[in-house]
């Protein structure tokens, strides 16, 4: 079980997040982790220390003070990398492996899709595409894509 204690967060000179236990003034560098990064990104955030032990459990980011929330969100944004595909420009070929040119929420990029099986359904509408390097790209709602992108995507589903 996680110990309930009062804590404070701040950033050290190396840019790491530091968690101070206000009860005994001990300090540990921590990393925030989302427990359900896709289905419920703002619920269940865990702060773990460098040994991988959970120090603090946060039910919901909303219940934190603004200062803490911003620190955690910054750190999360820094660690999380799952570009969300907004538009598919083109694919090099209709058979895999092929190169995809896409627009993501993080800018334009391209990736190699090794096989259709690398497109996985999280739910019937949410897809996760794993590229040749293992980077995951998200399609949050495939029905929300425009018809051009949908048509391309449809070839591989």
């Amino acid at each position: 079980m996680i110990q309930e204690f009062n804590y404070h967060l701040n950033r050290d000179v190396f840019g790491k997040l530091l968690c101070t236990n206000l009860d005994d003034q001990s300090q540990k560098s921590v990393v925030p982790i989302r427990t359900f990064p896709i289905t419920a990104p703002n619920e269940g955030i865990s702060l773990i220390d460098s040994q991988g032990h959970e120090l603090v459990w946060i039910n919901n980011l909303g219940e934190l003070s603004n200062e803490l929330r911003i620190l955690i969100e910054e750190e999360l944004a820094n660690r999380e990398f799952m570009p969300e595909i907004k538009y598919i420009y083109e694919v090099s070929n209709l058979t895999t492996p092929n190169v995809w040119q896409v627009e993501t929420d993080l800018g334009k990029t391209s990736f190699i899709l090794k096989g259709e099986e690398d497109i996985r359904h999280l739910t019937s509408m949410t897809l996760v595409i794993t590229d040749s390097h293992g980077i995951c790209l998200l399609i949050r709602n495939r029905s929300a894509l425009d018809s051009h992108s949908r048509k391309i995507l449809d070839h591989f589903l």
Partner: peptide, 16 residues
Amino acid sequence: DYSGAGNLELIDANSL
């Protein structure tokens, strides 16, 4: 690196 994004840091003795 974490979840596909790498981070290369240059630090000196005191800070990042």
